[in-house]
Simulated scan of single mutants.
Amino acid sequence: MSKVSKRPVIRMPTAAEDKAITAAAKSDPDAQPLTPTQLKAMVPLRSLRGRPKSENKKLLISVRYSPEVVAYFKSTGEGWQSRMDGVLRQYVSRHSRSA
């Protein structure tokens, strides 16, 4: 037999119960209902998850560098891969102008 439990039944409040809940919320200064402006500003949590999307998407590739190059950039601390990307970008911009 399956051990999956049945979903609980969700019972919506009646109009009278809803009115009582709203009145109780309005009387509590620490639990005020959201204003229409606040509700409009809300976004689904799903859209806030993860790292923000970059305008400059990078490609995932596999490349081999000499140990000295990797050791140097790693010795510069956290963010060494971004610094390495910056150096390569500078190289590309300098050499693409003269071409």
Rank of each mutant, 00 (worst) to 15 (best):
S62G: 11
L59Y: 13
I10K: 07
Q90I: 08
T35K: 01
R49F: 03
A71D: 11
T76A: 07
L88V: 09
V69N: 08
Q90P: 05
T22R: 15
S47H: 02
R49H: 05
V9N: 10
L60V: 14
A16S: 05
A71G: 08
M42H: 06
H95S: 04
V70A: 09
G79T: 01
S5E: 15
M12F: 07
R94Q: 14
L60T: 15
L34E: 05
M1H: 15
S66M: 12
S82I: 14
E55I: 08
A71I: 02
K57Q: 13
G50S: 02
D18H: 14
K26L: 14
D85E: 14
Q32P: 05
E55K: 14
P44T: 00
A23I: 00
P13H: 00
L39T: 10
S54E: 00
E78V: 12
M84I: 01
D18V: 11
A15I: 11
R64G: 07
W80H: 01
L88S: 08
S93Q: 15
A99D: 05
T76E: 07
P33Y: 03
P29C: 06
P67I: 08
S66R: 12
P29N: 06
A99N: 02
F73R: 04
P44I: 04
L88M: 11
K57H: 13
L45D: 14
S75R: 09
L39W: 06
L39K: 13
L45R: 12
S66A: 12
L88F: 09
L59H: 13
L34N: 07
M1F: 14
L45K: 13
T35W: 00
L60G: 14
I10M: 06
P8L: 06
L48R: 02
G86V: 07
T76Q: 12
F73C: 02
R49Q: 08
K53L: 02
K3W: 11
A25C: 09
T22H: 15
I10G: 05
V4C: 10
P8V: 05
G86F: 10
T37W: 10
Q38P: 02
R7Q: 10
D30Q: 15
R89E: 14
N56H: 14
R11L: 15
D28G: 05
Y65R: 07
F73I: 01
R83F: 03
K3D: 15
Y65T: 06
R97E: 01
K74V: 06
G79N: 02
I21H: 11
L39H: 07
P52S: 04
R64T: 13
G79F: 04
R49D: 00
H95D: 01
M42S: 08
E17P: 05
A41P: 02
G50R: 04
L34W: 07
V63L: 10
P44S: 03
T22F: 12
L60M: 14
E78W: 10
R51E: 01
P52I: 00
V9W: 06
R94N: 15
S2C: 07
P44D: 02
S27G: 12
T37V: 12
R89D: 13
S82G: 15
S75M: 01
A41H: 03
M84Y: 03
S47K: 05
Y91M: 13
Q90F: 09
H95F: 07
P36W: 00
T14F: 03
A16H: 04
K53V: 02
W80S: 02
K58N: 11
I61S: 07
L59T: 13
S93E: 15
Y65W: 11
